[in-house]
């Protein structure tokens, strides 16, 4: 293959994986904006999305179009349940308590998933044909287009939700100033629950579309979450557009790094980016107003 085509190939793969990171980062941001919490169980939402989809389509033999919304709904249920049981009852918890509770949540979800689906990676067929499409010497799997499409859909829906709907605006108000939001009559606690629901839904979508490519097992979520967090930080924690751009960027960097440097250290690349950004510019490459937020910790 021509070296240009190889590079292009890496970039295509990177964009697909990066879309997943972008969706995970969006999930982090939604909860963070509304509550100031970094949800360490975000990766488990992704894993659950894929797992539910596998069960619904292969065991229950539901058509994908039906299974998809059901899988998302089930993960939303888990997300809301987690928030209601473990986070809702807490009175002014410390950052450490919140971190440990979401980690405990992720461990529990992982445990249940291992119980339910076993330890082996599970397989989900591609949404459509598995025949790669040729493009300038590089090939694209149709599934990668599905991934990109899902990211686009998520972005459009979120943009519409936060800018056009009353509930979305109320959530933005919470992100801006929780006390003021409460004063104007917004039910902040409900908004927190809603943020977990929304975040779980996005995670589920990411998990469902990526599963045909990477397979899914019970402990796959952790690394996706760490890289998604890297994207959220790179884009400026709390920034939606930042998350998308940074997610794609990290995906491409990782893919190029794996191709040209070392596939062994593929996973380390995103982490080095994460650390680099944290050390040099914790507000993210694209964020600036977020410096204010940092002080909240």
């Amino acid at each position: 293959m021509h070296s240009f085509s190889i590079t292009l190939q890496y970039i295509f793969t990177g964009i697909a994986v990066g879309s997943i990171y972008a969706m995970v980062a969006l999930g982090f941001n939604i909860i963070y904006n509304c509550t100031g919490i970094i949800n360490f169980a975000q990766g488990e939402f992704v894993m659950l999305g894929g797992m539910f989809m596998i069960t619904l389509t292969t065991t229950w033999k539901l058509p994908s179009l039906v299974a998809f919304p059901i899988a998302v709904a089930l993960v939303v249920l888990v997300g809301v349940g987690f928030e209601r049981i473990a986070i809702h009852p807490l009175k002014s918890p410390s950052v450490l308590v919140l971190i440990m509770i979401t980690i405990a949540g992720s461990i529990l979800i992982k445990g249940v998933a291992m119980f339910a689906w076993g330890k082996e990676p599970c397989y989900l067929p591609h949404f459509s044909s598995e025949t790669p499409i040729n493009f300038l010497g590089a090939t694209i799997l149709p599934q990668n287009l599905w991934i990109l499409g899902c990211l686009a859909a998520v972005v459009i829906v979120l943009a519409w939700f936060f800018n056009r709907t009353l509930v979305g605006k109320a959530m933005r108000a919470c992100a801006h100033n929780r006390d003021a939001a409460r004063l104007v009559g917004i039910n902040v606690k409900q908004m927190v629950t809603l943020s977990f629901a929304l975040s779980a839904a996005i995670g589920a979508v990411a998990g469902i579309v990526i599963t045909p490519i990477i397979l899914m097992d019970y402990q796959r979520g952790a690394m996706l979450a760490l890289k998604g967090f890297g994207a959220a930080i790179l884009g400026g924690l709390g920034s939606g557009p930042g998350a998308v751009v940074a997610g794609l960027l990290i995906g491409v960097l990782e893919s190029l790094g794996a191709g040209y440097i070392s596939s062994h250290y593929k996973d380390a690349i995103a982490l080095v980016v994460l650390l680099g950004v944290l050390f040099i510019r914790p507000a993210g490459l694209l964020g600036s107003a977020e410096i204010q937020r940092l002080k909240k910790f």
């Binding site: 760490l226 967090f229 930080i233 380390a268 982490l271 994460l274 650390l275 944290l278 940092l294």
Partner: peptide, 15 residues
């Protein structure tokens, strides 16, 4: 601090 420190140390451990 806080979440940032937690994630950074988690990332370092992973590296």
């Amino acid at each position: 601090r806080g979440h940032y420190l937690a994630m950074a140390t988690l990332g370092l451990g992973e590296i």
